[in-house]
Structures are given as structure tokens and as C-alpha cells.
Amino acid sequence: MQVLNGFVLRRPASIAEAAALLADPGARALAGGTDLLANLRHGLDRPATLVDLTGLAGLDKLDWADTGVAIGAIVTVARLARDPRVIAELPALAQAARSIAGPGHRSAATVGGNLCLDTRCVYYNQSEAWRRSNGYCLKREGDVCHVAPQGTRCHAAYSGDLAPVLLALDAQAEIASPAGGRRSPLGELYRDDGAQHLTLGRGEFVIAVHVPAPAPGVRMAYRKSRPRGAIDFPLAGVAVALAASDGRIESLRVALSGTNTHPRLLEGTGELAGQAIDNALFARLGKLVQKQVSPMRTTVTPANYRRQVASALAQRLVKELAGVS
């Protein structure tokens, strides 16, 4: 039985050893494997080595402090979805975790793996035979992006569900590297390129994500649209963190997934502070979303539908969180 490509599995005992192993160009980080192994089965990569991060001590913790929580990269999505304190204090994160794939995936899938999820496209997530018959594509082995054949870039969509929530909550990513480590705003983990959407260098991998404690009064939610109610990736996923009083916005952060090559924090929501929460505000918010998302024909659903649904979800979540009917 040979469905995978004959890689060597390495199980490092320390972060430094893992970083050294991952410095090899043929090495890939393996956590839960629910994204990577499915992609390897489709021949989307042929790594010489898989570096298993799930044995690393200390990366499986939720460390709570007054200032916030540090979530280890190999905490499973199932645990995040069920953790009583996550549900109580960061409900949008629990909602997003619970919406990922199916229960059989969530028991293995990890926070770090979901943050680093490969981008997806209807021309990419296909079997070797399918892609070969179509001349492959720009993201893998081919020269043409079938979504935008005139262009020179890959439009595969980032489809992780945790990243938009963590962006809306202003989280930071802690990254290990052969040179030591660094910590940066989560948004800097990504770049606007479907073929190379992570900014991680050789040997680098995410070891934790730090979520600051939300300011008092902040309410949050995550919701996604998808063809069926489980397993499917988001056509559009929207996270909202809102503080409001007396019917006016105090602070609003919105982030999106599934609509661009990277998870996107909506710009311009700062200017909505102080605005009355009414139909004029929803129209402004809807326009901001429609202008900043750039869904392409990477799913079987039309791009314009995803643009509309992203806008509608953002408006609906703000309405619900503000208690406006």
C-alpha cells in the first residue's frame, strides 16, 4: 500500500532540534496532519522529511494570566472548542474551533496547524490525475493560474477559521527559529500570495499564539458560510469584536477568512467609533467589507456570492452583538 510519498518521519524532542530539522529545504512541519496528510495524498507536495511537532514539551498548554492567554501550537482544535474558560472568555474562538471540519479532524487538528493551513483552490485541491489533465496550476507544478489566466500570481484562498478571530482580538504569534525566536503581530505571519502565504523562513514554525485579554465590555462572535454545515471550508468566515454603549460603537474590529489569500483584518473600522449603530452604519460596514475582500473563482461558488455573504455576515454579527434587531 503506497499512497504517501515515502518521507522519513522525525520526532524531535526539543524546539531547537525541530528548528534545525526544519531548516532542511525538504522538511515540512507536521502537527495534527489533517491538512498536510490529505494534501500529500493528492500529491501536492513531496517532502523528504516530516518533522512531527506533537511530541514537543510545553506546546500543548493553555496558559492563562491576567493579561491574556498563551495557546500552545499543538493544543488541539477539539480542546479549544470544549475548554470552559475559552468558551466563557473568548467565545468567538470556541465558535471558530467548533466550526472547523468534523469531530474526527478536530481531535487531531491543532491551533498551529490551522493558523498555517495551506491555501485552497478548486484547481489545486484535486488528485494528481485531475491536475495533470488540466496542465497543473501556478501554485503547484504549472505556469498558469486557471482562476486568473492573464495574471502572474496565485489566488488560492486562505481558509483557516481561527486566524480571523485571533486577528480581531489582536493576537501575536510566537515563532521558533534556528536563530532563537521572535514574536510578532499575527497578521505578519501572512502575505498576499496564495502560492506562498506564510512569511515563515527556513526552520521557523509557530509555537504559540498570545491572545490579550479583551477589554471589558467587548463582545465577540465568529460565523462562516459554507456549502454544508460540517467539514467544508469557509466560503467566507467573519470574526467580530465589538464594544458598544448607548447604541454607539466604542470599538470594532472585523477580520475575514476564505475571501483572500491571507486572513484579513478589515481596515477603517476605527473610524466607526462613536457612530450610532443604525442602518447607515451597517451600510458603511458592508461597503468596507465589499471593498477589501477579493474573492476569486477558487470555489464552486461564484466570487460575487462570497463577497456579498462576507458583507452580510459582518453586518449580521454586529447587529447581533449590539442587540439590534
Partner: peptide, 20 residues
């Protein structure tokens, strides 16, 4: 791989997918 659940088994008591 990972789309249908037909290979669901229990791994340390938790449902998981044998194909992944």
C-alpha cells in the same frame, strides 16, 4: 482523505480518522 468519515475509529477513546 478526510472527507467522508467512513474510516472513523477511536484513538484513545476519541473519534479520529484512520486515513489521516
Amino acid at each position: 482523505g478526510g472527507e467522508c468519515g467512513a474510516c472513523t475509529m477511536l484513538l484513545d477513546g476519541e473519534p479520529a480518522l484512520a486515513c489521516l
